[in-house]
Amino acid sequence: MTNWWPPLTLVGSWLALLALLALTVTLAYLPLGSFNSAVAIVIAAIKATIVAAFFMELRDRGARLLIFAGAGLFWLGILLWLGLMDFMTRTPA
């Protein structure tokens, strides 16, 4: 283990995550109105993709593993979809 160096891709993606974090924080201070949340969510999605692809090593895996990983995403979609269905169609009493 003494000669072990972290692979460049890992270091690179770590730096990218840090850069994106800095970007989120900076953008949070700009008065973009409702765009603030939109931008933050887009950046968060990019970060999640980096983590999944590089740290979880999903980028060069077989179909079965991708299906299982995708299932997690799909189920998150169900949570958001049916949860928002209530939130967006509520009528004030």
């Binding site: 049916l82 269905m85 169609t89 509520r90 009528t91």
Partner: peptide, 22 residues
């Protein structure tokens, strides 16, 4: 089983549409 959870919330004040779907 993941698509039905709102049946625990019929009287909670969730939207009517949500209640119908659940």
């Amino acid at each position: 089983g993941f698509l039905v959870w709102g049946h625990h919330m019929f009287v909670s004040g969730q939207s009517l549409l949500a209640s119908l779907v659940f």
